[in-house]
Amino acid sequence: MTATVTGESQATAPRILVFSTNNISDPGIDLAGSSHMHYSPTVMVISLPCTSGIRPSWILYAIQQGFDGVFIAADGEECAYLPDCAERTAGVMTQAQELLSEAGYEPQRVRMAAVCSVCAEPFTNYMHEYSSSLAQLGPSRKATA
């Protein structure tokens, strides 16, 4: 097999960690794949039951370890667990931003948007937009060359 690199350059494309939800946003991200929409392979997803369960410290950890940004693909109104899911997730995000700021990272390194089970295109667009804004921000990996 010959592997060809035609996408964004590996070295410079920002690494994005996405937190998705098993029932709602992860299927939306799957749909982007089934529809063969493209975003950078430096985007990687961890799926959870509900984004209200994200520890802000995970976000800081991800950035410290080398991700350039964390994107929370939250449920909209559809969350089957928590009616105030969006509010809670926003709270997680605020806390994460505080943690990031304290540690000397830009708060823009975490972002959140509602992604539902058919939001293939919005998700892809979010990834493109977020990639380019993170690229402007520069890499988070301070220690690495």
Partner: peptide
């Protein structure tokens, strides 16, 4: 869905 199909343009 979250790898090969999304990165058909970038095998490496």
């Amino acid at each position: 869905e979250q790898c090969s199909w999304t990165h058909t343009d970038d095998h490496a």
